[in-house]
Amino acid sequence: MSVRLQRESFDIGAELKALRGDNCDIGAVVSFTGSVRGTVGGGDLLSMTLEHYPGMTESELRLIEDEALKRWSLEASLIIHRYGTLEPGEDIVLVATASPHRAEAFEAAQFIMDYLKSRAPFWKNETLRDGKSGWVDAREGDKSAEERWKTS
């Protein structure tokens, strides 16, 4: 169970191996990796800079992970999110979940990403190859993706 916020890239294979460790009760590991696209709405991307809210970012990611652990019985979980300036093709975020059977790991990973998208305080600023730059607008679909997990 861990949350990491870092400027550096991460090695997905090494992270998943470490997540599993020597836990023989893990029968399923699900991971999601989000990466920087080279083509965005406005044209070709040169770079993307992620701003965040130091302190709140870490606590919000921990809250999201805690909520996932309450809802699903996971053997292990990991959230890594990068900040700073990234280029097309670079990875931004890694979410991994491990459980005895696949359903819990799949659902928990999707829940964590949906909540992260609408609650973790990150903001993307894109710089295009033609020199233009601007803040990325939030997508309406991200809010509805969060809302489908609401418990009554």
Binding site: M56, I92, V93, M113, K117, R119, A120, P121, F122, A138
Partner: peptide, 10 residues
């Protein structure tokens, strides 16, 4: 207190 636009991480 913090004021910010809707978040766009992930």
């Amino acid at each position: 207190i913090a004021l910010f636009p809707p978040v766009t991480g992930g």
